[in-house]
Amino acid sequence: MAKGSRDLSRREFVAASAGVLLSAGTPRLTRLELTAQQAIDRIRARVGLPWRDTTVDTFKAGDPATVVTGIATVVMATLPALRQAAAAGRNLIVTFEPTFYSGNEDPGPRATDAVYLAKKAFIEEHRLVVWRFSDHWGARVPNEFAGALAETLGWAALRSADNPLVYSIPSTTLGALTAHVRARLGVKGSLRVIGPPDLRIRRVLVSPGTTDMPGTVTNLPQADVILSGEPREWEAVEYVLDTASTGQPKGMIAVGRLVSEEPGMRACAAWLRTIITEVPVETIATVDPYWRIA
């Protein structure tokens, strides 16, 4: 794998050199080109983790030989996000979540569904390439999603020394913290809260994405509230409810999986810009899919 990456790097180097040499006024010069495959090979070489043999981080749609005009990172490659990317000339979409309605991208009974077919047709028509970057971007240490979510909330310097997922923030209440989270994350219907508004908060467990039970049980005793993406009601929610019953009340602020992962994919775009300079790299904002009754 490393050998393949070096070979590609050499080809890119040759292309880049040709571009420089011919740039002095030659109108038909070889433009500096980066294919989707080359971009991904560079990501694989630079992500800082051994590439897994079995991984969901593969091409999901489009031709890897496509020349990249721009890269868009997204939490989830929904049709609206793909349209936004295409309109901006970003034809390589790097997505954290699946594209075709299942973890393994098998649309199942939806294979003949008009919505699925419309999405496939849009990708083909605009020659988009969709690549998933989940296992590896999600495995970087410290966790990119937790760090970026905390940074978005203004806590970059407040990570506790004893636990990288816990942030020691200036003393506040659950109600005030909820208002802060709502304002900073642009969360709408996805926001759900457990606990009394006057609950005193000093330490926050930051748990974006799917908030699992082992992580909650291990870390919540060191915090006053869990800032969750997507908790399960029979896991983290029940645990938080039971803490109150034991006289040690804890709060939960759930913002939804997609909303909670947006900062992490914005950070992904920033990281990609440090390794891919040939084309623009941007993130496409996540719109909270849920609304609430007023």
């Binding site: 929904t78 609206p80 979540e97 008009a114 699925y116 999405k119 997507e230 999986r257 997609l258």
Partner: peptide, 18 residues
Amino acid sequence: GESGGNTEYALDAAAAGQ
């Protein structure tokens, strides 16, 4: 789960006019 199913389908369906 907010991915791998109904959520992206609903968002896609709205965008596809269905």
